[in-house]
Each structure stands twice: as structure tokens, then as C-alpha cells.
Simulated scan of single mutants.
Amino acid sequence: MTLYDTLASLWRTVVPMIVGALVAALAHAGIGVDSAAATVWLGSAFGAAYYAFFRVLEAHVSSRWGWLLGLARPPQYPAKATPAPAVVPPSAMPGA
């Protein structure tokens, strides 16, 4: 994975958290939530829903929705190489 892909994945995770925190702050100011824990839960839940919603739109509707996650293009993760199966010589087999 390139440096760009690493930074892109981090940025696309942080943007929904920032949006969630902003929405929680606005909800706290407008609704009058007394509990700080409720604000944290609201922010976290909204951030997770925000990310999931726009990630699905990006994957299934148009890549342009990715801009609402901070970057238009998701990071590209290289495929892992499949290790070759171990070859055991017949002489090393039990009972041989």
C-alpha cells in the first residue's frame, strides 16, 4: 500500500468522525442534551451511519459520493500473495 493510500484511508475515517462531532455539538446546542455521554454516543452513531451511507453510495451509485468522505477515491489495497502450499516429501510422512 502506498503512502497516499494509507493517508487516504485515515482521512476517509476521520472526516465522518468530524462530521459526527459537529452534528452532536449542534444537537447538544439545539436539543439541550444534558449528558456528555449521550453527546458522545450521538456523535459516534451519526459518524458511523454517515460513513456507511456514503460508502455504500460511493460503491454502488457513483464514485463522486466519496467526496463526502473527504476524498473522491478510496484507497487501493494490494491483493495479498497466496503462500504456496507446503510440500512434504513422502519419506517424511508418518508411517513411511
Rank of each mutant, 00 (worst) to 15 (best):
V15Q: 08
V14I: 14
G43I: 05
R55K: 13
G32P: 11
A52Y: 12
G32D: 12
Y50P: 01
R55Y: 14
L7E: 13
D5N: 15
A25E: 02
A45F: 12
F46H: 00
L22D: 04
A72E: 03
A36K: 07
P16N: 05
A59Q: 15
G66P: 06
G70E: 03
G70M: 04
P75T: 08
P78N: 11
K80G: 03
L26E: 02
R12A: 12
V87G: 04
L68T: 07
P83S: 10
V40S: 02
M1W: 12
V19L: 05
G70S: 03
T2V: 00
G70F: 12
Y51F: 15
P78V: 09
R55V: 02
V33W: 15
G47T: 01
R12G: 11
D5T: 01
L7Q: 13
S63H: 12
S62G: 08
R55L: 13
W65V: 02
S35M: 13
V87D: 11
A37T: 07
Y77E: 11
W65N: 00
W41A: 13
V87R: 05
G20R: 07
T39P: 01
S62N: 05
Y51W: 13
W67Y: 10
L69K: 00
T6K: 06
G70D: 06
V33I: 15
L69M: 05
W65G: 06
